[in-house]
Each structure stands twice: as C-alpha cells, then as structure tokens.
C-alpha cells in the first residue's frame, strides 16, 4: 500500500465522516497511536449514532457503552461486531484518560475497525455489495529497530492473552457454551419439555400455577414490596442482590484495569530500556 492509499476507500460511498475518521486513524497508527485510538473511538461512536437513528426508536442514550448495549440487545449489532466496538471504545477511553497506547494495540483495533466497516456498509445501505480485500497494515514511516520489533512482539503476545481472557469472561456469562449447537440443544430441550408437559396433562395435573403466576406478574413491584407478608423479604433480597451484582461489576472493571496496567507496565519497561 503506497502512502496515498488507504484500506478504507470503500467507506466513502456509504458515510464520508466515518471514512474520514478511519483514514485519519490509519495515518496516525504508527506516529501517534493515542490519536489513532481517539479517531477510532469517534468512528465507532459515529457508526453507533447512525445505526441508532436508523434502526431504533425512543430515547437514545448519549453514552457510547449504553448505546452499544442497546444496539446489541436490539439485535442490530451482532455479538462479534459488538465485541470489537466495545474493545475500541475501551481502548479509546483509556487513551483519553492518559493510558498510553502501544502501536500494536492501535494496529489491532484498526484492523477490527476495518472489519466492522464492511459490516456497517451493508447495514446502512441494504443490499449493497461490499467485498473486503485483505487488510494491509500501514507501513511505519521509518524501519523498526530490533528493540521496537521485540517490543511489538511482546505487546502482541499480551494483547492475545487479554483477548483470550475477555473471551473467557464473555463466554462464562452466556447461556450456551461456545462448542454447543444452540439450535440442536433448543430442539432437544423443547421436545423433552413438550413430552413432560403431555405426561403431566395425561396424569390429570393441571397447570395449577398459571393463575397464581399471572397474579404475581400482574402486581406492581412496589405493591408487592408494600405487602407486609413479603415486604421485608423483597427489600432484603434487593439489598443482597445489589451488593452481589456490584461485586461482579467491580470484578469485571478491576479485570479491565489489570489489562491496562499490564500494558502500561510493558510500555514503561520499554521506556526504561530506551
């Protein structure tokens, strides 16, 4: 790829602003990786806003994390693209808050932005054909020294490890395992459940809980909490559940901080050597 070329030419036909941000990120990736991350984060934010305005109704959150969450829950952004967009958001935020971005990290996110861009084009213009060529990493302005090459390798290994840990966290939270055939499992469980239902019905067991469950569901939460029979329990349950949920959220946030610290540690090591 020559200096005049870019991986993101195709984007111009679909969204000029997103294309401009992508090209700027590409330009900065070697010389100023923090700025590259700013641009990529802004690019993702611009994409998210466009997708939200095109495909969602109601109040739109201004927070990028919440916006991506809504798009993902609404089935507009598939999981793989959402993961990449969140990764760019996190690393972009870290750069904004002064955590230095290594070149290999910025390059990794640029590559992800390239893949997201292809998908984005197909969403904003239905039926459009976008064939992505292989991503060509921009060349550094000057050849890398042996030390820089070694450092980049170390960062790449760290990034791989962070990626694996993030995937493990994500997969641990999901209902199905990564190796499971969800359709097949669903079919099998449904079949079994219907069979059990038939057996219960044949045995004369009515769905006795139906009225009761409907009653509970029809009640407002506040009314249940005010009920002296259940009020204490529900308030206690809320306190306990909130605490437990906060612990998990804190654990997940701490993990992300650890990833950043590991990266910063490597950056400092390099600075010490240089």
């Amino acid at each position: 790829m020559s200096d005049q070329e870019t991986n993101f030419h195709f984007l111009e036909r679909f969204d000029k602003r997103v294309a401009q941000l992508a090209k700027q990120a590409e330009e900065y990736v070697h010389t100023d990786p923090d700025s590259c991350m700013f641009k990529l984060r802004l690019m993702v934010e611009t994409m998210a806003k466009k997708l939200t305005s095109l495909q969602m109704q109601g109040d739109i959150s201004k927070d990028l994390g919440a916006m991506l969450g809504s798009l993902e829950r609404g089935g507009i952004v598939p999981r793989r693209q959402a993961d990449s967009m969140h990764a760019i958001r996190r690393d972009g935020n870290a750069a904004v808050h002064g955590s230095p971005t290594p070149v290999p990290t910025a390059m990794r996110r640029l590559r992800e932005a390239y893949k997201i861009s292809g998908w984005f084009c197909k969403i904003v213009k239905r039926g459009s054909k976008v064939k992505l060529d292989e991503f060509i990493p921009p060349h550094p302005p000057d050849p890398l020294t042996k030390e820089s090459e070694d450092f980049h390798k170390k960062i790449d290994i760290l990034e791989e490890s962070i990626e694996e840990r993030r995937i493990a966290t994500r997969e641990s939270l999901l209902m199905f395992g990564p190796q499971e055939d969800v359709q097949e499992v669903t079919r099998r469980i449904k079949e079994e459940l219907v069979a059990l239902d038939n057996v219960a019905a044949a045995a004369g067991e009515p769905t006795i809980d139906a009225d009761f469950v409907a009653l509970v569901m029809a009640m407002d939460l506040e009314q249940i909490e005010e009920d002296p029979r259940h009020g204490g329990d529900s308030r206690q349950a809320r306190r306990e559940a909130e605490q437990q949920l906060e612990q998990i959220k804190k654990h997940l946030a701490d993990r992300e901080n650890e990833f950043l610290e590991e990266r910063t540690f490597l950056m400092k090591q390099r600075d010490t050597i240089c």
Binding site: E72, R79, L173, M175, V185, K190, L245, I248
Partner: peptide, 24 residues
C-alpha cells in the same frame, strides 16, 4: 435455558442475565 426455550425466544438480555446470576 429450559425456561428461556419454553419462552420461545432467547433474547441477549436473558443470555447475559444467566451468567450474571450464576456469578453474582
């Protein structure tokens, strides 16, 4: 997952709620 399948669809909210509940 049996409850989610009985409900005939598995939105992503239920998906992640399953793991959060398991851990939290």
């Amino acid at each position: 997952r049996t409850m989610a399948i009985a409900g005939e669809e598995i939105p992503s909210l239920q998906e992640s709620a399953t793991g959060l509940y398991a851990q939290a």
